[in-house]
């Protein structure tokens, strides 16, 4: 799986939580989930659960804290997939 594929899949997962849909069109790895994409911080746990279901992985609290941007979230997904 390439980073670009994961990014596309992540876009599908976070789509419902992003209030301004136009932000998704030019989604970049630098985008902060809360700051730039304006995702309600309470929904980060929902996104984590959706990611866990999608890739059959488990993301611990410590890793959740590192998912600040789209790129960092992709890193975490890769790490967890590698250690499966």
């Amino acid at each position: 799986m390439t980073r670009e594929q994961i990014k596309d899949e992540l876009k599908g997962i976070i789509g419902d939580y992003v209030p301004e849909k136009e932000l998704l069109e030019s989604l970049s790895e630098e985008h902060e989930l809360i700051g730039d994409l304006k995702i309600n911080s309470a929904h980060i746990v929902d996104i984590v659960l959706d990611i866990e279901d999608k890739y059959d992985i488990m993301i611990e609290d410590e890793a959740i804290g590192k998912m600040g941007t789209v790129g960092e979230s992709i890193d975490i997904i890769f790490q967890k997939l590698d250690s499966k």
Partner: peptide
């Protein structure tokens, strides 16, 4: 309704 309500 907003998308979020329908989807989630």
């Amino acid at each position: 309704l907003p998308d979020f309500f329908i989807g989630k």
